[in-house]
């Protein structure tokens, strides 16, 4: 499952909107400020580390959904 991520632009501090799947695929994301011509992308060497974190988070999320179902 793709997770929506938002971080601030290191240059102008406007939000940069990203999606986890695309981020891991190496796509670059532009700053939402049209005046700021900044684009960011994840370093290739970091992909595995981030992918592992996302997978573990997804596992916790699935557990949370199951628990919520049990309650309802």
């Amino acid at each position: 499952m793709s997770v929506k991520i938002q971080i601030n632009c290191p240059d102008c501090h406007s939000p940069i909107f990203m999606e986890s799947m695309l981020l891991l695929a190496g796509q670059s994301f532009k700053c939402s400020n049209p005046e700021c011509r900044t684009a960011i992308s994840l370093s290739l060497s970091e992909s595995e580390k981030v992918a592992q974190a996302f997978n573990k988070f997804e596992h916790i999320r699935e557990n949370a959904v199951n628990q919520a179902r049990q309650v309802s």
């Binding site: 240059d11 011509r37 900044t38 960011i40 994840l42 370093s43 060497s45 970091e46 580390k49």
Partner: peptide, 9 residues
């Protein structure tokens, strides 16, 4: 844990 991003402008 820090994650490195590349920035192009």
């Amino acid at each position: 844990i820090m994650i490195t991003f590349q920035m192009e402008r």
